[in-house]
Simulated scan of single mutants.
Amino acid sequence: MVRLSSSVFLLAALWCSATISHAGPTLHCEMTYAGATQTLHVTPVDDPYPAPSVDVGGRFRFKAVMVGRGAQPDYIKTYAYLETRTQPVLVQQASYYPPFTPSPKGQRLTGKQFVYAGPVERELQYECVLQGVKP
C-alpha cells in the first residue's frame, strides 16, 4: 500500500512539473471603472482579430491580445474603447514588443493607465502584468 501511494505521488509530481514547464505566457489585466474592478486573462493567439473585447461598466470596452506562440510573444497590444450609442470608439491603443523580461511575480507590462473619454471625461483605469515568459 505504501509503495502504491508513493508511486501515485511520484506520478502526480511528474505530471505537475510537466504541466508547469509547458505553461506559456499569460497576460493578466485589471480594469477599474466607477469603483468596480474586473480581471481579464489573455493567452497567446495566432490571429488577433477574433479576440473579443470585454464590457467595462457599460461605458468602456477593453481588449488585450498577445500574438505569437512559444516562450516570448511576438507582440502584445491593448485597446480601450468608449461605448457610444452607435458603436465603440477607440480612445487608446498601446503596443508592446519583446524582449519581455521574466520576474518572479510577473512583468508589469503597462504600468497603471488612466484613460479619460466621453462628454464628462469618464475614467477607465487598467494595468496588465505578463507572467510565464522565458528569456
Rank of each mutant, 00 (worst) to 15 (best):
T101N: 12
Q87T: 12
P50S: 06
S103T: 12
S53G: 12
T39A: 15
K77I: 06
P98W: 03
V91F: 02
S95V: 09
Q38Y: 02
R59P: 00
V67C: 05
T37C: 07
P104V: 06
I76N: 08
F60C: 06
D55L: 02
V42G: 02
V45C: 08
L82D: 01
V45W: 06
M66W: 01
G70K: 01
V67T: 05
F100H: 06
I76K: 09
Y75L: 03
Q92T: 06
S53C: 07
T78L: 01
A51Q: 14
T84N: 07
S95I: 08
A71T: 14
V45Y: 03
T84H: 07
G68F: 05
V89H: 08
Q93N: 11
A94M: 11
T101C: 10
Y75D: 01
V56A: 08
L90W: 00
D55N: 14
A80R: 05
L40P: 09
T37G: 07
A80G: 04
S103K: 10
Y79V: 05
A51Y: 09
Y75K: 04
V42Y: 01
Y79C: 09
P48N: 04
Y75R: 08
M66N: 02
T43A: 14
A94N: 12
Y97W: 08
R69K: 13
P50D: 05
D74K: 13
G106N: 10
K63E: 09
A36E: 15
Y96W: 01
I76D: 08
H41T: 15
Q38C: 09
A36C: 12
R85P: 00
V67S: 06
D74T: 11
V67A: 04
A80N: 04
E83T: 13
D55I: 02
R59I: 10
T86W: 11
T101E: 13
Y49S: 13
V89N: 04
K77E: 15
T86P: 00
P98M: 02
S95W: 11
Q87C: 10
P102R: 01
Y96R: 00
P98N: 04
D47V: 06
P73D: 04
G57Q: 07
F100S: 05
V89M: 11
T43N: 13
T78N: 03
Q93L: 11
Y97V: 07
F100R: 06
V54F: 13
D47Y: 03
D47M: 03
T86L: 14
T101W: 10
I76F: 09
G68H: 05
P88T: 11
F60E: 04
F60S: 05
R69N: 11
Y81G: 06
Y49F: 12
Y75A: 00
T39E: 15
S53W: 10
P73H: 03
K77Y: 06
P99R: 09
Q72W: 06
V65K: 00
S53Y: 10
T78C: 02
V56C: 05
Y79D: 08
A36P: 05
G106E: 08
M66T: 03
K105D: 15
P73G: 02
A71K: 14
Q72E: 10
V65E: 01
Y49V: 13
V67N: 04
L82Q: 11
S95D: 14
